[in-house]
């Protein structure tokens, strides 16, 4: 039994005004494992990603729980050391490649800045690494691309650049936050295949955030299903698809289009299910509040 590389344990966060956004979330990602984080918009998926990197917005506070990376409790560190500790070990692939690159900087420094300033590489060493990685993500003429500005690249190219930048640091964990949502459907498949390929080649652990169950089946080994900031089901992907335990997971699957049964109409979640989910969340909160006040 190996120790998980990323270990989120009982994490609750809330808006400073009150509403709880994550409800005792526990997620473990082992070295080299691909873990899917599935849920609808607003379930708190991106909030978890931000918590992993220690960059939750100021308006949000951590109520309880811990996030550990490589066995170290991140909340025990102060901001500066925590940033560089994470920057050396984990990388982020953002959702929208059109806004995630700085419009007024060339591509080269946007790939090499971490290598030089956080990992301590020499400039030419970092440049060589950047060129090699651009080759790996199948960008033609990498020398030329390094000198370009983001607006001179297509959306798919920019996502490739961001993937190259993430893998260039040889992180042991990559968090990908819906990395294909903002792209054209034709480009989505290529990018997914690329991420799968890069993950297999580098053996990096991957926390893959998505609302697309089809992607989960192809790419991931384990999965957490998130609803309203609460993990409602956690299992291996095989188990999840063969014997989904939670009604919400089943509803999610029924709402996913299938290539093999294109005629089958998609079923929206029933009012009964939504009512049951709301009750479950309310019960969770009531139990949590009771425990907090007595404990």
């Amino acid at each position: 039994m190996t120790a998980p590389y990323l270990d989120i344990e009982g994490l609750s966060v809330a808006l400073r005004e009150g509403a709880r956004l994550l409800r005792r979330v526990s997620i473990k990602v082992n070295p080299g494992e691909v873990h899917a984080l599935v849920g609808e918009s607003g379930a708190g998926k991106s909030m978890i990603a931000r918590a992993v990197f220690g960059i939750l917005p100021n308006s949000i506070e951590i109520l309880e729980g811990r996030v550990a990376l490589a066995g170290e409790d991140l909340n025990a560190m102060s901001q500066g050391p925590r940033r560089s500790f994470i920057g050396k070990r984990a990388a982020f692939i953002p959702q929208d490649p059109l806004t995630a690159l700085n419009p007024s900087r060339r591509i080269e420094p946007q790939i090499t800045d971490r290598l030089i300033h956080i990992l301590g590489m020499k400039t030419n060493e970092a440049r060589a690494r950047a060129l090699a990685l651009l080759g790996e993500v199948k960008i033609a003429e990498p020398e030329r691309v390094l000198r370009l500005y983001p607006h001179e690249l297509s959306g798919g190219m920019r996502q490739r650049v961001l993937i190259a930048a993430a893998f260039a640091a040889e992180p042991r964990l990559i968090v990908a936050d819906e990395p294909t949502t903002a792209l054209d459907v034709t480009v989505q498949k290529q990018i997914l295949a690329l991420i799968a390929d890069m993950q297999a080649r580098h053996g990096t652990a991957l926390l893959f955030i998505t609302h697309n169950l089809g992607v989960v089946a192809k790419l991931c080994q384990t999965a957490s299903v998130l609803y309203a900031g609460k993990v409602v089901e956690q299992a291996s992907v095989r188990q999840l698809f063969e014997k989904p335990q939670h009604a919400y997971t089943r509803a999610l699957m029924a709402a996913t289009p299938r290539y093999d049964r294109p005629d089958e109409s998609l079923k929206p979640a029933s009012p009964e299910l939504l009512a049951a989910l709301a009750r479950e969340v309310a019960d969770t909160d009531a139990a949590w509040l009771k425990e907090r006040h007595h404990g």
Binding site: F53, I55, Q79, G80, R83, S84, F85, I86, G87, K88, A90, A91, F92, P94, D96, T99, A100, L101, N102, P103, R105, D113, R114, H117, I118, L162, A169
Partner: peptide, 21 residues
């Protein structure tokens, strides 16, 4: 902006992110 958030995940301090991004 998103590129500033990405720079934070790379490990850069707030001051550095402010000045270089």
């Amino acid at each position: 902006q998103d590129y500033v958030m990405l720079a934070r995940t790379k490990g850069f301090s707030e001051t550095r992110v402010l000045l270089s991004e």
